[in-house]
Amino acid sequence: MVEVMDLEWWVITYLTALMIPYVISFFLYTIRMFKGPTLPDRVIAVDALGYDLAAFLTILTILLKSPIMIVCSVVLILWIYSLDIYVAKYLESKELGG
């Protein structure tokens, strides 16, 4: 097999160039979080921020070359989901008179 270019250099350069749109989208989510006039708007912005940050962390484990760091994104996804459930239970029980 004739070698065209180095695989390691290609993967690292491509992933480094793809990190910048993720950082821009995190910034846009935080603008909605500071601006949102009601409470559920803020919860939605934190939700989306957490899920996309978890995807970003799995991309970073290839760049940092340390394979144990991938367990941090499962934990982040599960606890951000439970924050949704807490706010939903608070809003719904106030309305039903509990």
Binding site: P40, V43, I44, D47, Y81, D84, V87, A88, K89, L91
Partner: peptide
């Protein structure tokens, strides 16, 4: 999660 917050 999104269904829970929308219903509430």
């Amino acid at each position: 999660g999104s269904h829970a917050i929308a219903r509430a």
